[in-house]
Structure formats: C-alpha cells, structure tokens
Design a protein around this nucleic acid. Structure first.
Length: 415
RNA sequence: GUGGGUGUAGCUCAAUGGUAGAGCGCUGGACUGUGGCUCCAGUUGUUGCGGGUUCGAUCCCCGUCAUCCACCCCA
C-alpha cells in the first residue's frame, strides 16, 4: 500500500456510512420541525474571522489552525468550527433584517491540527445549529430540548446534559477577579498547567484533573453565585422551562467552554462511553459576537454535535444495516446475459434495485453472490427460459420458486 | 508540542535467534442449471522502513515512520 490518508483524517465507508446517513436524516428531521433551515457555509475563511471570534489566547487559534497563504498572499484558514462562519454569514447578508430569531443548521468537516486520539481527529464532522436575534431563555430551552430529543430519537442512552451559566460582560469581570484572588494565595502549589491557566484563562483551573489542584480549589467562588440579576433570572427561567419539559440535566458550575465568545448559557452533552474526549455535543450563548463582527447588537446561541463521537455511541448499540438489492439476475449464456441487463434496466426504471453478475460464471457462483449481497430474489435466465420467454425466480429468504414472464419481472414481488 | 503502547496475509491474531502459521475472508470443486450448512482444494507476506549486534534477526539494540491511547485542549 503506497499511500495513506493523512494523519487524523479518515475515510468513512460502508457499513459505517449507513449510520452516518441515519444520524443526518434524523437530525435534519428535527431541525426542520423546530424551524431551523440549512445553510451551506464555506470550508475556508479569512484567518481573522477565527482569531476575532474564537480568541487569540485559545489553543485553537494559538496552535491548532490549518492556516496558509493563498496565491495572492491572503491568510486563509480551514475552519476549526462553524459558529464563526455562521456569524460572518449572518452579518454579511444582513439577515438581521429578517424576522427574529433566525434559526439555521449546517453540517460538514472541521479541521484542527492536533494529535489524534480516541474521539478526536484532525478532520472531523459537526452538525451545528445557531439561532440569532433572541436573548429570551425560551430559545435556550428550545435548543437544548431539540438536542435532547434528537439524541434520544437516535437511541443514545446514558448521556448527561451538563449546564452552566458563565455570566455576561457585566458580572464576569467581578467573578474573574474574585476567582483570581482565590487562586493567587496558593498559586505556587498548583500544577504547571494551572499556573499557565492563571494568566490565560483562570476559569479553566476549575476543571483541571490533577488531584492536588482539585483539593486546592475546594471553596473557590462559584460562577453561579456571582451572576448579575439579569443573568441569574435568565438562567433560572431556562432551568424552569427545562423542568417543565422533563429534561434531565446536571448543573456543573465548573463547566467552562473553551472559546472566548461564550456568554451566559453553556452546556455540554457527555457520555462515559467515549474515552477522554467525552463530549458528544456542546454549545452556548454568544451574545456579543454578532456586534463584534460589525453587525447590530444581536444575541445568539448555538451548539454543535461531534459526528464521529455520535457515531461511536451509535455503534455501541447497533450495527448499521446495509441496504440490500431486491433482485439479483443470474444469467447463463451470452444472450441471456444481454437480456438480463435489459430486464435489470427495466426494474431500475421502476425504482427497484437490481444487480447483475457482470461476468460469465456458473449458476452456483452467481447464486452464491446473490446470497452474499443479501438480495431478496434471484432471477435465473438461460437458454431454456429465453426460448419460452420466461424466467425462473427464487425467493432467497424462503426458498420458494416459480416462473414469470420476461416482460413482467416485477409481478413476482408486487403481489 | 509531551508521555506511553503497538507495527507479521485483505481482516483478527499466533510463532521461533536458524528467512512464517491459524481463523475469518476470497476463488473453485464435491452438487455438468439452484445460494445459505458441511467437506475438500487453492489464494495472498519485501514480518512498516533504515542501520547495528550476530555465522544467522520477524525476534535483541538504535534510529525513523505509521498507528493507538493519554496529557494539553476541544465536538
């Protein structure tokens, strides 16, 4: 084998592809039911778009972007996520002039230059949804409910919804200040990573996994105790509505999302069956981002589902059933082979999946192939049948056999 | 970027310091025009790559590449 796919980049083949297709079909059905329209976004964008939205200090921007100059020397980046493009698109096309909220979904590959591991690759697929133009908690609740319902429709069990509010630009600075005061006292006792986080993103210290850091941070101030009245009311209303719709969730005051643009509601769907990268979906509010992109002050919220992780969970409980041909036509002899092709074409025009052998071989091996393909029926044509204008048919599940006219092969299974 | 594990047939894996085998798969036959079950036969390898030690390396050592898992970080 001479060539390999690039590191962290995978081919998706049958039978897995059937799970992907099912997941996408179900997701789209839910999106349309909740009024989300598809948008198709470009895979490449101007690099600034990501720096501006995701944030200069994040790992994504700092070390994970596929960035390169195009032939005119512009800096181009393969999108590491979808929200930035969606916001750019919303502002660029003046979609704020349409009735609010505007609700969209998108799907496609994202790219991050990272070391691959379980549940993480350099090219990975997301299905994302974004809603622009409402700050009301009802839209937060609706998106979380939609996500919950579509995941459970797909049969996902043992997933957990984790929820938090990380405040707004009113209350977050004060919280951050009291948090850094808390950490500063014993900063030298934290792990090296946390010392870094202290200056880059102190909220992150809250979900460090190092034992000693976990002890040290006992008693650290909690975001939810520092929310301003508006954020508090927003979060309470969201929780109330989720309760009304019987959505189970856990509050996780340590849930911090990695991208700079998040405000208020933050949530993640996690599973213990995924390895270290356990989030199958994540999202939150980004009320300042549209304005940051030069649009009107427009609140917004979105989430993204990690497709590979979703598929991994689906594979725990089901195998993808490959579709099977309705008919396999076995032909014996050159003239029969020609007629078989004509009959197959007739069936296909009626929308029936018909397979041929594409080679001269024994009836036995042709039937073996029909069986391996999982065909429901085998049709058999040889010289004897041609002479009489008929075919033998055989139901490969029941073994039942009979004859039919060459002209009406579909009559065998359209009874 | 850091740490650890693993590289042998299409796939899953054995094996020995004396140049490799099984199961599955695939092809054919037993059954001259009837699949699945059974039996029989056939089929595939530069043992990831380069170097070193050795009379001799798939095995030991070094390097390299790939891959997996974890850290960082994220979907």
């Amino acid at each position: 084998m001479k060539y390999n796919a690039l590191k962290g980049v995978e081919d998706i083949l049958p039978p897995d592809i059937f799970l992907w297709q099912r997941a996408e079909t179900v997701a789209k059905a839910f999106f349309s039911r909740y009024g989300f329209s598809e948008i198709r976004l470009p895979i490449i964008e101007s690099t600034d778009i990501f720096i501006r939205s995701i944030g200069e200090s994040t790992d994504i921007v700092g070390k994970e972007m596929y960035t390169f100059p195009d032939k005119a020397g512009r800096s181009i980046t393969l999108r590491p996520e979808g929200t930035a493009s969606a916001v750019r698109c919303y502002v660029e096309h003046g979609l704020n002039n349409l009735p609010s909220p505007q609700k969209f979904f998108y799907t496609g590959p994202m790219f991050r230059y990272e070391r691959p591991q379980k549940g993480r690759q350099r090219q990975f697929y997301q299905i994302g949804a974004e809603a622009f133009g409402s700050e009301h908690p009802s839209i937060d609740a609706e998106m979380i409910v939609m996500l919950n319902n579509l995941l459970s429709e797909l049969g996902l069990k043992e997933v957990e919804f984790e929820l938090n509010s990380i405040g707004c630009e009113e209350c977050r600075p004060a919280y951050k200040a009291s948090l850094t005061d808390f950490f500063r006292n014993r900063l030298d006792e934290y792990c090296p990573d946390c010392k870094n986080r202290f200056s880059t993103n102190p909220l992150r210290i809250l979900d460090c996994k190092v034992e000693h850091c976990i002890e040290l941070r006992q008693g650290a101030p909690s975001v939810t105790d520092h929310l301003c009245a508006d954020c508090r009311a927003h979060f309470d209303e969201l929780l109330l509505r989720l309760g009304l719709m019987n959505i189970k969730y856990t509050l996780n005051p340590n849930l911090v999302r990695g991208l700079d643009y998040y405000t208020r509601t933050a949530f993640e769907v996690t599973s213990q069956h995924l390895g270290a990268q356990k989030a199958v979906a994540g999202g939150g509010r980004y009320d300042k981002l549209v304005k940051e992109f030069g649009g009107p002050d427009t609140p917004a919220i979105g989430f993204a589902i990690g497709m590979e992780r979703l598929i991994a969970l689906l594979k725990d409980s089901e195998t993808a059933a490959a579709p099977v041909p309705k008919v396999f036509i076995a032909a014996l002899g050159e003239e029969a082979d020609r007629q078989a092709a004509v009959i197959a074409e007739g069936l296909r025009r009626q929308g029936t999946w018909a397979e041929l052998n594409y080679a001269a071989s024994s009836l036995k091996s042709q039937l073996r192939k029909a069986d391996r393909l999982g065909a429901e029926y085998a049709f058999i044509i040889g010289d004897n049948e041609l002479k009489d204008g008929i075919m033998q048919w055989k139901n490969l599940k029941t073994g039942e056999q009979g004859q039919c006219s060459l002209k009406e092969p579909a009559s065998v299974f359209n009874k």
